[in-house]
Structure formats: structure tokens, C-alpha cells
């Protein structure tokens, strides 16, 4: 099929297949899946500017499907998601501005790329060690999966910050937390996404679990709920710059919709620590892909 807007001809079944794959990942881990979809789309000949914008557009639709399914399972904290969206959108703009100002210094791609690799390696390593510890705690202390977190100290210290207004999130089991902490977490994940180009979900899901203290399943559902707004905002801004081939995104969404539901439903068969252990491999994959691109000069 010829996609007139981006001017490329691609087999729609292949596109729907990419959507299906990232749909499963998105529904299961609460990530956008841009680190897989982006390179695959680029390999099929889609120009880079259309890769970014079109991926964001399909992510919006996919997150609607996955978040809705997680909501049915009781895995979405809407109040938390809506508050974080504010911080995220401000963060995305701040990150993008920082990127633009760094552009003037030259070699920005190399600089940003290696920061991305470093952050992904830190997140992946931390989650890998933590989830193994949590699994061990679950076995030895016979506590529930929701309570088994390898490093609980950080969220306990965060709860100690009493800058008003204080807010509660009953769905996530958080009795009281400063509103500013939640906004800051949204801002950090948004700024990294805006600065690094991709990786919002990579950063936000671990931050929700370790910093705010949200149970893993709810962190995934809430992250997806938030992606609806942040990716929707990205779709709008990229469309205005002419970077979105919406026909391509609609075809990708045909596969992503079913993949996202399978991913979302599959979370029911895994405990929080097990999901976090599997999740820890994603940042490594993302880091390897970017490092390869940087080293090969691609």
C-alpha cells in the first residue's frame, strides 16, 4: 500500500505486525514501545521525522486500548495519572527546549545518545537487582507480591516530605504524599522524554514504583493512561510540523489494539517482582540499540 503523506510504499500487514509486537510490550510493561517500533519503521524506509511523529500517533490509540483494559482490571489510578500529566507535559517542553539549545553547541546527537545509554543501563541494572531481591523477600518472608519491593527506603523518605498540599491516592494505597513530589516525578519523566526523544515509559514506570510507591500493576495501567495524554499532545504538535502519516498510524493501530489487550491481560499471570524483572531487560535492549547506532555512525 502506498502511504501518500510520507511517500513510502509498505506492506500494511508488516505495519500491523509491528503494531502487534509493540502492542503486547506496551500492554504488558506500560511502555510506548518506540525503541522497537522506531528502528523497524526506519528499516522499512520511513523517513526519520515521520517515524517519530507516526509512532507517537499510534501510541495514543494503543494506550487507549491498553489503559481501558487495565482499568477493567482495576489497574489505573486516574487521579494520579491526571496530576502527573501536568508535570509530564511541562517536562516534555523543558526537555525539548534543552535539546534545542544544546543543538547549537554541535555533536548533540552523540552527547544525548550516550546520556540515554547511561540512564537506560542504570535503570535496567537497578530494576534487575531490585526485582531479584523482591522475589527472594517474597519467598523467605512469605509476604504478598504488592508488598515485596527490594528497595523500599526511597518511597518511605518521599512520604516524609510534607510540603503542602498533601494528597492521597486510595487506588494506589498511598495515604498521603506531597502534590509537588508527584508533579516533579511527572516533570522528570517528561523532561527525559523530551530531551532524549524516547523513553518516557522506561523512566516513568520505575519512578512510579520506587519513588511514589505505586504497586507494579497499577503503575503499568496508570503509565498507559498518562501516555494517552502525553502521546496525544505529541501527536498534535508533530502533526502541525507535518511529521505524522496518520494513515500509517491507523494501520499500525489495527495490530497494536489486539496486541495491547493480550499484553494487558497477561499481567494477571505475573507477580509485580516478576514483571519488574522482565521489564529490566527492556532498558538494556534500548541502550544496546542506541549504542550500536552511535558507534556505527548511523
Amino acid at each position: 500500500m502506498e502511504f501518500l503523506i510520507s511517500g513510502v510504499t509498505i506492506n500494511p500487514i508488516f505495519l500491523a505486525g509491528i503494531g502487534f509486537l509493540v502492542g503486547i510490550l506496551g500492554g504488558f510493561f506500560g511502555v510506548g514501545g518506540g525503541f522497537i517500533a522506531g528502528p523497524l519503521m526506519f528499516l522499512t524506509g520511513v523517513p526519520m521525522n515521520f517515524v517519530v511523529g507516526t509512532d507517537l500517533a499510534h501510541m495514543t490509540g494503543k494506550s487507549i486500548v491498553a489503559a481501558r483494559r487495565h482499568r477493567v482490571l482495576g489497574h489505573v489510578d486516574i487521579k494520579l495519572g491526571l496530576i502527573m500529566v501536568i508535570g509530564t507535559i511541562i517536562g516534555v517542553e523543558a526537555g525539548a527546549q534543552l535539546f534545542e539549545s544544546l543543538k547549537q553547541t554541535g555533536r548533540v546527537d552523540q552527547f544525548v545518545g550516550w546520556i540515554y545509554v547511561a540512564i537506560m543501563l542504570v535503570i535496567g541494572s537497578f530494576m534487575f537487582i531490585e526485582s531479584l531481591r523482591a522475589t527472594q523477600i517474597m519467598r523467605t518472608q512469605r509476604i504478598s507480591a504488592n508488598e515485596a519491593v527490594g528497595f523500599k527506603g526511597l518511597s518511605r523518605r518521599i512520604y516524609g516530605i510534607r510540603i503542602p498540599p498533601m494528597i492521597s491516592f486510595p487506588v494506589s494505597g498511598i495515604p498521603s504524599i506531597s502534590l509537588w513530589t508527584v508533579l516533579l516525578v511527572g516533570f522528570i519523566s517528561g523532561a527525559l522524554a523530551g530531551f532524549l526523544g524516547v523513553g518516557g515509559g522506561f523512566v516513568r514506570m520505575p519512578l512510579l514504583v520506587y519513588v511514589i510507591g505505586v504497586p507494579t500493576h497499577i503503575a503499568i495501567g496508570t503509565d498507559l493512561f498518562e501516555i494517552i495524554f502525553s502521546a496525544g499532545y505529541g501527536t498534535l504538535t508533530h502533526s502541525l510540523k507535518g511529521n505524522v502519516d496518520i494513515m500509517m498510524a491507523l494501520v499500525m493501530l489495527l495490530g497494536a489494539a489486539i496486541g495491547a489487550q493480550i499484553g494487558a491481560l497477561s499481567t494477571r499471570y505475573f507477580t509485580g517482582p516478576r514483571i519488574r524483572l522482565l521489564f529490566s531487560f527492556l532498558p538494556f535492549i534500548g541502550a544496546i540499540l542506541v549504542a550500536y547506532k552511535l558507534l556505527s555512525g548511523g
Binding site: A57, G61, V65, T235, I246, A249, I258
Partner: peptide
């Protein structure tokens, strides 16, 4: 841009309901 956003949201909602 507006039509694109409406289309992707609409298709997401319809596909979810459909399945």
C-alpha cells in the same frame, strides 16, 4: 492535525469496544 488526533482516538476507542 486535529483530524489526525480525532481519527486515532476514535479508532482506539472503537477497536477496544469491538474486541
Amino acid at each position: 492535525a486535529i483530524v489526525s488526533l480525532i481519527l486515532i482516538v476514535l479508532q482506539g476507542v472503537v477497536l477496544e469496544r469491538l474486541t
